[in-house]
Nucleic acid binder design. Structure first.
Lengths: 137, 137
DNA sequence: ATTTGTGCAAATCGTTTGCATCTGA
DNA sequence: TCAGATGCAAACGATTTGCACAAAT
Protein backbone atom coordinates (compact mmCIF):
# COMPACT_ATOMS: atom_id res chain seq x y z
CA UNK A 1 0.00 0.00 0.00
CA UNK A 2 1.33 3.33 -1.04
CA UNK A 3 1.94 5.78 1.76
CA UNK A 4 0.96 8.56 -0.53
CA UNK A 5 -2.61 7.37 -0.52
CA UNK A 6 -2.70 7.46 3.26
CA UNK A 7 -1.35 10.96 3.32
CA UNK A 8 -3.92 12.07 0.80
CA UNK A 9 -6.65 10.69 3.00
CA UNK A 10 -5.15 12.35 6.01
CA UNK A 11 -5.02 15.69 4.26
CA UNK A 12 -8.58 15.38 3.05
CA UNK A 13 -9.70 14.63 6.57
CA UNK A 14 -8.01 17.82 7.63
CA UNK A 15 -9.90 19.56 4.82
CA UNK A 16 -6.81 20.37 2.84
CA UNK A 17 -6.39 19.67 -0.82
CA UNK A 18 -3.77 16.99 -1.26
CA UNK A 19 -1.47 18.84 -3.58
CA UNK A 20 1.85 17.51 -4.73
CA UNK A 21 3.82 19.60 -2.27
CA UNK A 22 1.58 19.04 0.71
CA UNK A 23 1.65 15.30 0.25
CA UNK A 24 5.41 15.29 -0.11
CA UNK A 25 5.91 17.46 2.97
CA UNK A 26 3.44 15.46 5.01
CA UNK A 27 5.35 12.30 4.17
CA UNK A 28 8.63 13.84 5.18
CA UNK A 29 7.20 14.97 8.46
CA UNK A 30 4.92 12.15 9.49
CA UNK A 31 6.78 9.07 8.34
CA UNK A 32 9.53 9.15 10.89
CA UNK A 33 7.89 9.27 14.28
CA UNK A 34 7.61 12.39 16.38
CA UNK A 35 9.64 15.24 15.11
CA UNK A 36 10.30 18.88 15.87
CA UNK A 37 11.12 20.75 12.75
CA UNK A 38 11.87 24.31 11.90
CA UNK A 39 10.77 25.61 8.53
CA UNK A 40 14.34 25.82 7.38
CA UNK A 41 15.10 22.25 8.36
CA UNK A 42 12.07 20.93 6.55
CA UNK A 43 13.07 22.96 3.55
CA UNK A 44 16.49 21.33 3.54
CA UNK A 45 15.00 17.87 3.89
CA UNK A 46 12.65 18.51 1.04
CA UNK A 47 15.46 19.57 -1.24
CA UNK A 48 17.52 16.55 -0.23
CA UNK A 49 14.57 14.32 -0.99
CA UNK A 50 14.34 15.94 -4.38
CA UNK A 51 11.04 17.64 -3.66
CA UNK A 52 10.77 21.01 -5.34
CA UNK A 53 9.11 23.46 -2.98
CA UNK A 54 9.74 27.06 -2.19
CA UNK A 55 10.37 28.28 1.31
CA UNK A 56 7.20 30.36 1.13
CA UNK A 57 5.21 27.20 0.51
CA UNK A 58 6.92 25.49 3.41
CA UNK A 59 5.72 28.26 5.68
CA UNK A 60 2.25 28.26 4.23
CA UNK A 61 1.99 24.52 4.56
CA UNK A 62 3.30 24.44 8.09
CA UNK A 63 0.74 27.01 9.16
CA UNK A 64 -2.11 25.33 7.35
CA UNK A 65 -1.21 22.03 8.98
CA UNK A 66 -1.07 23.76 12.32
CA UNK A 67 -4.43 25.46 11.84
CA UNK A 68 -5.98 22.19 10.83
CA UNK A 69 -4.66 20.22 13.74
CA UNK A 70 -1.97 18.17 12.06
CA UNK A 71 0.87 20.00 13.77
CA UNK A 72 1.49 21.97 16.88
CA UNK A 73 3.65 25.07 16.92
CA UNK A 74 6.14 25.57 19.72
CA UNK A 75 7.78 28.87 20.60
CA UNK A 76 10.69 28.26 22.85
CA UNK A 77 13.45 30.31 21.58
CA UNK A 78 12.57 33.69 20.23
CA UNK A 79 13.57 33.66 16.65
CA UNK A 80 12.77 30.16 15.55
CA UNK A 81 9.43 28.36 15.55
CA UNK A 82 9.38 24.61 15.86
CA UNK A 83 6.56 22.47 14.56
CA UNK A 84 5.80 19.33 16.50
CA UNK A 85 4.26 16.34 14.77
CA UNK A 86 2.96 15.15 18.11
CA UNK A 87 -0.21 17.10 18.74
CA UNK A 88 -1.05 15.24 21.93
CA UNK A 89 -0.67 16.55 25.44
CA UNK A 90 2.97 16.57 26.39
CA UNK A 91 5.81 18.86 27.34
CA UNK A 92 9.36 19.50 26.21
CA UNK A 93 13.00 19.56 26.97
CA UNK A 94 14.93 22.23 25.15
CA UNK A 95 18.60 21.44 24.68
CA UNK A 96 20.20 24.83 24.92
CA UNK A 97 23.48 23.81 23.37
CA UNK A 98 22.10 22.31 20.21
CA UNK A 99 18.83 24.23 20.13
CA UNK A 100 16.89 21.01 19.82
CA UNK A 101 13.44 20.27 21.16
CA UNK A 102 12.83 16.83 22.67
CA UNK A 103 9.55 15.37 23.80
CA UNK A 104 8.97 14.59 27.41
CA UNK A 105 6.67 11.61 27.41
CA UNK A 106 3.20 12.26 28.74
CA UNK A 107 2.59 10.77 32.14
CA UNK A 108 5.46 12.77 33.41
CA UNK A 109 5.14 16.26 34.68
CA UNK A 110 2.23 17.28 36.73
CA UNK A 111 1.41 20.91 37.05
CA UNK A 112 -0.42 21.64 40.23
CA UNK A 113 -1.89 24.54 42.10
CA UNK A 114 -2.40 26.84 39.16
CA UNK A 115 -3.74 30.23 40.15
CA UNK A 116 -6.96 31.52 38.63
CA UNK A 117 -6.42 33.12 35.27
CA UNK A 118 -7.01 36.86 35.13
CA UNK A 119 -10.61 38.09 35.05
CA UNK A 120 -12.57 37.02 32.00
CA UNK A 121 -9.82 34.76 30.72
CA UNK A 122 -9.74 31.05 30.18
CA UNK A 123 -6.76 28.77 29.86
CA UNK A 124 -5.85 27.99 26.34
CA UNK A 125 -2.86 25.77 27.06
CA UNK A 126 -0.17 25.08 29.62
CA UNK A 127 3.36 24.69 28.36
CA UNK A 128 6.19 23.38 30.44
CA UNK A 129 9.65 23.78 29.03
CA UNK A 130 12.63 22.34 30.82
CA UNK A 131 15.80 23.90 29.52
CA UNK A 132 18.79 21.64 29.84
CA UNK A 133 22.44 21.97 28.99
CA UNK A 134 25.56 19.95 28.96
CA UNK A 135 26.73 19.61 32.54
CA UNK A 136 30.24 20.78 31.80
CA UNK A 137 29.16 24.22 30.66
CA UNK B 1 16.42 61.18 48.51
CA UNK B 2 17.11 61.09 44.85
CA UNK B 3 16.17 57.88 43.09
CA UNK B 4 18.98 58.42 40.68
CA UNK B 5 21.47 57.82 43.42
CA UNK B 6 19.85 54.49 44.26
CA UNK B 7 19.94 53.42 40.68
CA UNK B 8 23.58 54.37 40.39
CA UNK B 9 24.35 52.23 43.39
CA UNK B 10 22.35 49.39 41.97
CA UNK B 11 24.20 49.56 38.68
CA UNK B 12 27.54 49.68 40.40
CA UNK B 13 26.63 46.63 42.40
CA UNK B 14 25.89 44.88 39.14
CA UNK B 15 29.29 46.00 37.95
CA UNK B 16 27.94 48.31 35.30
CA UNK B 17 28.98 51.88 34.81
CA UNK B 18 26.10 54.14 35.73
CA UNK B 19 25.93 56.06 32.52
CA UNK B 20 23.28 58.61 31.70
CA UNK B 21 21.27 56.18 29.56
CA UNK B 22 21.58 53.19 31.84
CA UNK B 23 20.42 55.15 34.85
CA UNK B 24 17.50 56.58 32.93
CA UNK B 25 16.46 53.20 31.59
CA UNK B 26 16.86 51.53 34.95
CA UNK B 27 14.59 54.12 36.49
CA UNK B 28 11.96 53.61 33.86
CA UNK B 29 12.05 49.88 34.38
CA UNK B 30 12.49 49.48 38.08
CA UNK B 31 10.42 52.30 39.51
CA UNK B 32 7.04 50.88 38.73
CA UNK B 33 6.91 47.42 40.23
CA UNK B 34 7.27 44.24 38.23
CA UNK B 35 7.16 44.77 34.54
CA UNK B 36 7.53 42.82 31.34
CA UNK B 37 8.87 45.00 28.64
CA UNK B 38 9.87 44.47 25.08
CA UNK B 39 12.74 46.50 23.70
CA UNK B 40 10.39 48.48 21.52
CA UNK B 41 8.09 49.33 24.42
CA UNK B 42 10.97 50.54 26.54
CA UNK B 43 12.20 52.58 23.64
CA UNK B 44 8.83 54.28 23.36
CA UNK B 45 8.70 54.96 27.08
CA UNK B 46 12.15 56.45 26.99
CA UNK B 47 11.22 58.82 24.19
CA UNK B 48 8.04 59.82 25.99
CA UNK B 49 10.06 60.51 29.10
CA UNK B 50 12.33 62.68 27.04
CA UNK B 51 15.30 60.36 27.39
CA UNK B 52 17.45 60.33 24.28
CA UNK B 53 18.60 56.78 23.58
CA UNK B 54 18.98 54.81 20.43
CA UNK B 55 17.28 51.49 19.94
CA UNK B 56 20.67 49.82 19.68
CA UNK B 57 21.51 51.07 23.14
CA UNK B 58 18.20 49.81 24.45
CA UNK B 59 19.11 46.33 23.23
CA UNK B 60 22.63 46.56 24.57
CA UNK B 61 21.39 47.73 27.92
CA UNK B 62 18.68 45.12 28.18
CA UNK B 63 21.20 42.39 27.51
CA UNK B 64 23.78 43.78 29.86
CA UNK B 65 21.18 44.01 32.60
CA UNK B 66 20.15 40.46 31.87
CA UNK B 67 23.72 39.17 31.94
CA UNK B 68 24.31 40.92 35.21
CA UNK B 69 21.22 39.62 36.91
CA UNK B 70 19.07 42.71 36.94
CA UNK B 71 16.61 41.34 34.43
CA UNK B 72 15.38 38.03 33.18
CA UNK B 73 14.63 37.36 29.53
CA UNK B 74 11.49 35.49 28.56
CA UNK B 75 10.81 33.89 25.19
CA UNK B 76 7.17 33.12 24.92
CA UNK B 77 6.12 34.23 21.59
CA UNK B 78 8.57 33.66 18.83
CA UNK B 79 9.48 37.02 17.51
CA UNK B 80 9.47 39.19 20.58
CA UNK B 81 11.62 38.92 23.68
CA UNK B 82 10.24 40.18 26.94
CA UNK B 83 12.41 41.33 29.80
CA UNK B 84 11.10 40.73 33.27
CA UNK B 85 12.12 42.99 36.13
CA UNK B 86 11.29 40.19 38.55
CA UNK B 87 14.30 37.89 38.57
CA UNK B 88 12.92 35.63 41.27
CA UNK B 89 11.50 32.18 40.78
CA UNK B 90 8.06 32.46 39.26
CA UNK B 91 6.03 31.58 36.19
CA UNK B 92 3.83 33.41 33.73
CA UNK B 93 0.49 33.87 32.14
CA UNK B 94 0.62 34.95 28.55
CA UNK B 95 -2.46 36.82 27.40
CA UNK B 96 -2.79 35.72 23.81
CA UNK B 97 -5.11 38.51 22.77
CA UNK B 98 -3.01 41.40 23.94
CA UNK B 99 0.36 39.64 23.83
CA UNK B 100 1.04 40.62 27.40
CA UNK B 101 3.02 38.69 29.97
CA UNK B 102 1.71 38.61 33.54
CA UNK B 103 3.42 37.21 36.59
CA UNK B 104 1.99 34.26 38.36
CA UNK B 105 2.89 34.74 41.99
CA UNK B 106 5.36 32.28 43.40
CA UNK B 107 3.88 29.73 45.73
CA UNK B 108 1.56 28.73 42.99
CA UNK B 109 2.37 26.10 40.45
CA UNK B 110 4.17 23.00 41.41
CA UNK B 111 5.86 20.97 38.78
CA UNK B 112 6.13 17.36 39.74
CA UNK B 113 7.40 14.11 38.38
CA UNK B 114 9.93 15.53 35.96
CA UNK B 115 11.64 12.83 33.91
CA UNK B 116 15.41 12.56 33.92
CA UNK B 117 17.03 14.96 31.52
CA UNK B 118 18.76 13.36 28.55
CA UNK B 119 22.16 11.77 29.14
CA UNK B 120 24.87 14.17 30.24
CA UNK B 121 22.48 17.06 30.62
CA UNK B 122 21.50 19.06 33.63
CA UNK B 123 18.47 21.24 34.15
CA UNK B 124 19.10 24.87 33.56
CA UNK B 125 15.58 26.15 34.24
CA UNK B 126 11.96 25.14 34.20
CA UNK B 127 9.49 27.49 32.61
CA UNK B 128 5.77 27.18 32.90
CA UNK B 129 3.68 29.31 30.62
CA UNK B 130 -0.06 29.33 30.88
CA UNK B 131 -1.58 30.78 27.76
CA UNK B 132 -4.93 32.39 28.37
CA UNK B 133 -7.45 34.15 26.18
CA UNK B 134 -10.68 35.98 26.43
CA UNK B 135 -13.37 33.41 27.04
CA UNK B 136 -15.56 34.64 24.23
CA UNK B 137 -13.06 33.90 21.49
C1' DA C 1 -14.36 27.17 -15.15
C1' DT C 2 -13.47 28.31 -10.51
C1' DT C 3 -11.25 28.14 -6.69
C1' DT C 4 -7.19 27.31 -4.25
C1' DG C 5 -2.24 26.65 -4.08
C1' DT C 6 2.50 27.80 -5.48
C1' DG C 7 6.84 30.32 -6.56
C1' DC C 8 9.45 34.16 -6.63
C1' DA C 9 11.22 38.26 -5.17
C1' DA C 10 10.49 42.13 -2.53
C1' DA C 11 8.96 43.72 1.94
C1' DT C 12 8.73 43.50 7.09
C1' DC C 13 9.99 42.91 11.78
C1' DG C 14 12.79 42.23 15.59
C1' DT C 15 17.39 42.20 16.55
C1' DT C 16 22.51 42.61 15.84
C1' DT C 17 26.77 44.62 14.22
C1' DG C 18 30.54 47.74 12.52
C1' DC C 19 32.55 51.68 13.30
C1' DA C 20 33.40 56.49 14.33
C1' DT C 21 32.50 59.38 18.12
C1' DC C 22 31.78 60.48 22.97
C1' DT C 23 32.12 59.91 28.14
C1' DG C 24 32.95 58.36 32.82
C1' DA C 25 36.50 56.78 36.07
C1' DT D 1 44.10 58.96 29.40
C1' DC D 2 41.47 55.39 27.57
C1' DA D 3 38.61 51.35 28.23
C1' DG D 4 34.09 51.14 27.80
C1' DA D 5 29.48 53.23 25.95
C1' DT D 6 26.70 55.19 22.54
C1' DG D 7 24.46 56.34 18.03
C1' DC D 8 23.64 55.61 13.52
C1' DA D 9 22.90 53.15 9.58
C1' DA D 10 23.61 49.14 7.32
C1' DA D 11 23.32 44.03 7.80
C1' DC D 12 20.68 40.04 9.31
C1' DG D 13 17.74 35.98 9.81
C1' DA D 14 13.22 34.37 10.20
C1' DT D 15 8.92 35.03 8.44
C1' DT D 16 5.23 37.26 5.50
C1' DT D 17 3.19 39.21 1.48
C1' DG D 18 1.83 40.60 -3.38
C1' DC D 19 1.03 39.03 -7.47
C1' DA D 20 1.32 36.30 -11.80
C1' DC D 21 1.10 31.56 -12.95
C1' DA D 22 -0.28 26.64 -12.30
C1' DA D 23 -2.93 22.87 -10.56
C1' DA D 24 -7.00 20.62 -8.22
C1' DT D 25 -12.00 19.91 -8.18
Amino acid sequence: MNQTLDMEARLREAKLRPTRQRVALAELMFSKGDRHLSAEKLYDEAREAGVAVSLATIYNTLHQFTDNGLLRAISIDSSKTYFDTNTGNHHHFFLEDSEEVVDMPDGYVTVGNLPEPPEGMEISSVDVIVRVRNNRS
